[in-house]
């Protein structure tokens, strides 16, 4: 037995996220947790386990696999699913798996293997609510998104048709062809996520910690070669460097940063000093600055 007093920022964030997860289960017919293996997903899963303790969470998790994730991510995913006992559904877009090319057609790869794949999975398995780990602080385009974000046919987001959410009262009514994206971490910042991981002792993929990895530079981005599918071009060579990742995704599209941070304290310390926003490491975002909003309307988060 312990006495908890609820007055810290992290306590309040945690309680509100748990309330949102419970509201989703109470109001939606067939919800699913979108699990991307990253740190935000790890926090989300931890909160889900807390929300329904002492019972098991009454919903499965879905991983949309682009087949280009770091191998360590997939190993981590399978182990966490085993240890928590939460049902894991993996979906791969079989229509695109042979032609997807993150190296030469990054936008198309993301569209086919992530955006379309997610739409496929939600439609085939008839999920009416998909819980994701997106945060509003990630990008200005997300600053106005609701916690319960209505998606029309084709999973499109209509910024002008958003439902107000006073007092955290969520209108979960759906018409045919509509579904919900639910974002329990809306109010969290990247710093909150790391502080919470540290406080709760949540396990994250080791790629977040600095280690000597085989790197090469392409188009100015520092990449870590995870498998043989991408041949080195003339002039490129693998150089062992101590690097880590601030976000995780498809390995040819995720830039590493040079770092000596090998534990959580050092990661947070580095973040408090660093002057780069989180998404700067995502190669797919280096389009025009408002591309995120456009992608979102198409159904990519």
């Amino acid at each position: 037995m312990s006495v908890t007093r609820l007055h810290t920022h992290l306590d309040r964030l945690e309680a509100e996220s748990i309330r949102i997860l419970r509201e989703t289960v109470a109001e939606c017919r067939n919800p699913v947790l979108l699990y991307s293996i990253g740190k935000d997903s790890s926090v989300l899963l931890h909160l889900l386990l807390k929300a329904f303790h002492p019972a098991k969470p009454p919903l499965p998790m879905l991983h949309v696999n682009t087949t280009w994730k770091f191998r360590e991510m997939i190993e981590f995913r399978d182990r966490i699913a085993r240890e928590t006992g939460v049902q894991l559904i993996e979906h791969i877009n079989q229509d695109g798996v042979d032609t997807a090319d993150p190296v030469h057609a990054a936008s198309r790869h993301t569209h086919v293997m992530k955006t379309l794949a997610l739409r496929q999975a939600l439609a085939e398995l008839k999920f009416d609510a998909a819980i994701g780990g997106a945060r509003r602080d990630e990008d200005p385009a997300r600053a106005k998104e609701r916690v319960f974000s209505l998606r029309g046919a084709g999973q499109r987001w209509e910024p002008r048709k958003q439902r107000p959410e006073p007092w955290g009262l969520f209108n979960t009514q759906l018409a045919a062809d509509e579904s919900m994206r639910v974002f329990p971490l809306s109010d969290w910042t990247e710093l909150d996520v790391w502080l919470y991981i540290r406080r709760e002792g949540i396990e994250v993929v080791p790629l977040y910690f600095a280690s000597v990895r085989p790197t090469f530079v392409r188009n100015g981005a520092l990449l870590v070669r995870d498998d043989e599918r991408v041949p080195l071009e003339p002039g490129e060579k693998l150089i062992p460097k101590k690097v880590r990742f601030r976000t995780l995704g498809c390995w040819p599209l995720t830039a590493a940063v040079e770092s000596t941070a090998t534990n959580l304290d050092e990661i947070i310390g580095e973040m408090l000093d660093t002057r780069q926003s989180e998404r700067a490491g995502r190669i797919i975002d280096l389009d025009p600055s408002d591309s995120m909003e456009r992608k979102k309307r198409e159904g990519y988060f």
Binding site: M1, S2, T4, R5, D11, A15, I18, H53
Partner: peptide
């Protein structure tokens, strides 16, 4: 009174409990 990771001796306004 059950919290996220175990039984609680007391819980107060704002906390999500069972």
């Amino acid at each position: 009174v059950i919290g996220g990771s175990g039984d609680l001796a007391v819980a107060e306004a704002g906390q999500a409990v069972t």
